[in-house]
Design a protein around this nucleic acid. Structure first.
Length: 309
DNA sequence: AGCACA
């Protein structure tokens, strides 16, 4: 019962001579709102003084649930910090830590009775956990954490996806995999009023034009190689100068022609030789440049031979 | 209903 003032689970702490820190009778328990990067420092602090429980306990998974499935489910929830799957026998138990108990409660409610998997007809059941998920060693808040090469491969099997601008379909920063199955997402400063966290990837102006990221492209079928490339999927607001900047520095670049059509703009690029074209075909496939929004350009050999100019 | 990691 919630009104008893007694924790529903026993605690061996404190021993007789060390009473818990004074909480004025009738005063609300102090909730420390530390910034995210210090939230996890449970080290060296003796007993967990009454720490608010901000972890939820989730059951009802199919037996073969993967850590990552849970993470991908939870990433969206405000305040999400870390999660873990443990097995009791072959029953999976999930734990998910949030930045506050309010967030945890909200998450618990929104996951309650969710159909996690239709195939196996698994329906989630959530409760507040008895104690918080232990997250090892805090969060690395160093700049490395934002290194794109380290933030790849999270939601889904993108082999070389990097993220810059989140879109509804290319959401917030992928978490980073920690030691054993933990997920210790690099928390961008969480703005409780701002919806989902937005990755703040420091992108110093590149000396030479470089794509801001790469995203997987859809249509992989192609035409026979030649020394000209067709660039499609450029988005509505594509900026020709940006395009030129990117391609003109590629070895073997000869000329570029932009075709503004009704809806899409496409572009052809001629190279000195087949080799240069092929190299760029590979290296810039899926490249995202600022004016293309968050979509990756598709590079193909042209359907027909194009004679530029 | 089942609550672990350190």
């Amino acid at each position: 019962m919630a009104g008893t003032g007694i924790h529903p689970y026993h605690q061996q702490w404190p021993p007789a001579q060390a009473p818990p820190p004074p909480t004025a009778p009738g005063a609300p328990p102090s909730i420390h709102h530390a910034p995210p990067h210090v939230l996890f420092d449970n080290s060296n602090r003796g007993p967990p003084t009454h720490e608010e429980v901000r972890t939820i306990f989730i059951t009802g998974f199919p037996d073969d649930v993967k850590e990552r499935e849970l993470q991908n489910l939870l990433r969206w929830l405000p305040g999400y910090e870390a999660s873990q799957v443990n097995y009791k026998g072959d029953k999976a138990m999930g734990f998910a830590l949030f930045s506050s108990s309010q967030h945890a409660i909200a998450a618990k409610d929104s996951l309650q009775d969710m159909v996690f998997d239709v195939e196996t007809k698994s329906v989630l059941h959530t409760e507040m956990a008895k104690k918080n998920l232990f997250v090892k060693r805090g969060i690395v808040a160093d700049s490395d954490a934002y290194d794109q090469s380290k933030r790849l491969r999270t939601g889904g099997d993108y082999s070389h996806a990097a993220y810059t601008t989140p879109s509804p379909f290319h959401p917030p920063p992928p978490p980073v995999w920690g030691p054993h199955g933990y997920m210790a997402p690099v928390p961008p400063p969480y703005d409780p009023y701002g919806g989902y966290p937005v990755p703040q990837v420091p992108m110093p102006p590149a000396p030479i034009p470089a794509p801001s990221s790469y995203v997987p492209i859809q249509n992989t079928k192609d035409n026979p190689p030649c020394n000209t490339l067709f660039i499609g999927n450029l988005g509505q607001n594509i900026n020709e100068d940006e395009l030129r900047g990117l391609f003109s520095v590629q070895p073997g670049f000869k000329q570029m022609k932009v075709l503004r059509q009704e809806r899409h703009t496409v572009c052809f690029i001629e190279f000195e030789d087949l080799n240069s074209a092929t190299t760029v075909h590979h290296s810039l496939q899926g490249a995202v440049i600022p004016s293309s929004g968050s979509i990756g350009m598709r590079i193909q050999y042209p359907f027909r031979f194009i004679f530029l100019q």
